[in-house]
Design a binder for these strands. Structure first.
Length: 640
RNA sequence: GCCAGCGUAGCUCAGACGGCAGAGCAGCUGAUUCGUAAUCAGCGGGUCGGAGGUUCGAUUCCUCUCGCUGGCUCCA
């Protein structure tokens, strides 16, 4: 006798024979629009999912953001389908949906060319137009293995052997079948707005010893507008690329002669860095930090004691002289620890907050270097806090407050915060871990920032908080990190004498707020699109004399404005005003002061604001006052 | 480090069965003295990323190498 299963959909109740597709209920529902998925207990299910037990279903329609991942996953199958049609010899790997789209990995002896991608995309459209039903199949493992073996899909067979239970789920559309948990859209016709983006290498199962596959990336959306918006976003990101803007605006350069990942800050970049650092120092002093300077190398033995030689693989090879080996520093911590250990410490002097803009060197593999964002020599805005356990929470709160204060000054006010907790392998006492995790979480709660917990994702030496900032076009960048370190405290046997006259182990907090000057600068360039706010702009005001006879007046104003501490230039080239203005706009100089006969006669300038155009005449005094205010307030916008 | 793509003037890019290497912008010089996004003219500028090989001849074909790009991997 067939068992009947109770299925509740919206307000209606149905009874289905066990194993019949849930989609049966749809014929009875007066829904004007056909759903593409069901949702049950927070989980998305195929329309054809068999009735297995009592369920309450809701309907998910095309366009629903929850279904986007499914759309993209189905699009990845469509991609694999097209590839196997066009290149039957290709073996398919894995093809999930990812953050902004999807990819699929293929094993093929030749590389896919851009022409191949075009052909594949065309084939995908063809298959989509056929509107093939996407069927969910549950097969005994042996049968699935047999099917994929016959198709000579060895990678898939490997996956099934590895991951499949007694029964495995597969999805089929036309001649294409894939081992996959799903869920998927009911048919290929629903995949309408998609595009292939790029092809790159990827290792099978991420193992660099394994075979190298070719990964084709694509994206898909429910509407053409969303797809176009995303493609526009990619274009916009290209326009902001700091690797283009940096050299163009003469902020920094890199050179083959110097080596990869090594950056030279040009005067215009250096002045921005100076402003950032000055602000950073000022805020740190206000928060009770002291500064430290430390050398760039130290004896290798120091790094042995810290454990870096053992656990850290990004160190440059050591240098050797006078019978000793020296190590270029990848971190600042051991130096700060040495300073701490230079004498006995009392509980009365804790917390110690020691900050350093410390330049470190890391051997990053050549393939990962990327503009300013991933380099080999960089300056961390580092600090180490040594504190007692009763101070831990307050210290972390202080760090978070300082971090968000600094970031907000640059216009970063939207964050994603992660608390990473104890991993399986860890050093230190469980009791300390618990105390630290609790302090971190309490501090986060007090900060009012929404956060998520990455269970077990902490580093082996301590739990941490990471803060990612959201830039002007919504991209996330990791900057702030606050980490407890039980390892170094232990290895260097850090102690302080407590009120009880006994030795105690201090907590060691390692933190960087902006991350590194290089990386933060790269992010800033992209965030501002090169249009730095007035307080950071390398040239804040450019004065454009209309004709030669106005040059003396221009120089006079320049002197006057420089005396106020403003960064001012005069364009004395013998060009027309139009050309000078264009030049200044291209250079993204915030304020342009045009001076001619009129301005001389009433001691004024004609002001033009970058991007906003001519604002008319303004007296010299008013200009000075307003610029002063804008700089002092670190205003992100220029208003007159 | 691995896979793939790309390296031609400072920048953006043309180019060529393997046969003296081009444009625009920038730079320099001169003329123009001008009112809100490019005045005109002239000139200079290249081991065609580097090394080796094939060839009578290589920037072009081959090998190696360096750098960059997209990913992978790594990320104390």
């Amino acid at each position: 006798m067939d068992e009947l299963i109770k299925i509740k959909v919206e307000e209606s109740v149905f009874f289905l024979k066990k194993g019949t597709p849930l989609s049966e209920v749809l014929s009875e529902l007066p829904s004007p629009q056909k759903p593409i998925l069901f949702k049950s207990e927070g989980q998305l299910l195929d329309l054809s999912f068999p009735a297995d037990r009592e369920r309450e279903l809701s309907l998910v329609f095309a366009g629903d953001p929850q279904a986007l991942e499914v759309l993209r996953h189905s699009a990845s199958h469509l991609l694999a389908h097209a590839v196997t049609e066009l290149f039957p010899e290709v073996q398919v790997g894995m093809g999930p949906a990812v953050e902004n789209g999807y990819y699929y990995d293929f094993l093929r002896d030749r590389a896919f060319t851009p022409e191949d991608l075009e052909a594949i995309e065309k084939k995908m459209r063809e298959i989509a137009t056929q509107d093939l039903p996407i069927e969910r199949l549950v097969l005994p493992k042996e049968e699935a293995v047999k099917i994929f073996s016959e198709k000579n899909q060895k990678l898939k067979v490997e996956l099934i052997e590895e991951k499949g239970g007694a029964e495995v789920t597969c999805y089929r559309q036309g001649n294409f079948i894939d081992f996959c948990l799903g869920p998927h859209l009911p048919s290929t016709g629903l995949i309408k707005h998609f595009k292939l983006l790029s092809v790159s290498g990827a290792y099978w199962k991420g193992d660099e010893r394994g075979p190298q596959l070719q990964r084709i990336y694509g994206t898909a959306f429910f509407s053409e507008k969303e797809l176009q918006d995303y493609l526009n976003f990619l274009e916009e990101a290209k326009k902001r690329d700091h690797r283009r803007l940096g050299p163009e605006l003469e902020l920094f350069s890199t050179h083959e002669e110097l080596g990869g990942g090594l950056v030279i800050w040009h005067p215009k970049g250096a002045i921005i860095r100076h402003e950032i650092e000055a602000f950073w120092k000022e805020e740190h002093l206000k928060d009770g930090y002291d500064f430290i300077y430390s050398p760039h190398i130290a004896k290798l033995d120091l790094w042995k004691r810290s454990g870096h030689t053992e656990f850290y693989d990004a160190m440059f090879p050591p240098l050797e002289f006078e019978g000793f080996k020296y190590q270029l520093k990848p971190m600042n911590c051991p130096f700060h620890i040495m300073a701490y250990k230079s004498r006995q410490r009392s509980y009365r002097e804790l917390p110690l907050r020691w900050a350093e803009l410390g330049t470190v060197y890391r051997y990053e593999r050549s393939g990962v270097l990327h503009g300013l964002l991933r380099v080999r020599g960089f300056t961390q805005d580092d600090a180490h806090i040594f504190c007692r356990d009763d101070q831990l929470e307050a210290e972390i709160k202080g760090v978070i407050r300082l971090a968000t204060k600094l970031l907000a000054a640059f216009g970063f006010e939207s964050y994603q915060v992660y608390l990473a907790t104890r991993p399986e392998k860890y050093v230190g006492k469980l009791e300390d871990w618990n105390k630290a995790e609790q302090a971190l979480e309490e501090a986060l709660k007090a900060s009012g920032l929404p956060y998520q917990i990455d269970e077990g994702e902490g580093v082996f030496y301590g739990p941490k908080i990471d803060i990612k900032i959201k830039d002007a076009i919504g991209r996330l960048w990791q900057c702030t990190t606050v980490q407890l370190d039980f390892n170094l405290a232990e290895r260097f046997d850090l102690t302080y004498v407590g009120e009880d006259g006994h030795f105690h182990r201090p907590f060691l907090i390692h933190r960087a707020l902006l991350g590194s000057m290089e990386r933060f600068f790269g992010v800033l360039i992209e965030h501002y699109k090169g249009n730095f706010p007035l307080w950071l702009a390398p040239v804040q005001i450019i004065i454009l004399p209309i004709a030669d006879r106005h040059e003396a007046y221009a120089r006079e104003i320049q002197t006057r404005l420089r005396a106020e501490g403003f960064r001012v230039q005069v364009d004395d080239s013998r060009e027309k005003v139009n050309k000078k203005i264009r030049e200044a706009e291209v250079q993204k100089i915030p304020l342009i002061a045009v001076v001619g006969d009129k301005e001389i006669s009433n001691q004024s300038v004609s002001l033009r604001i970058h991007g906003l155009g001519d604002r008319g005449q303004i007296s010299l005094e008013a200009l000075i006052q307003q610029v002063k205010t804008l700089i002092q307030n670190k205003s992100l916008e220029i208003k007159f």
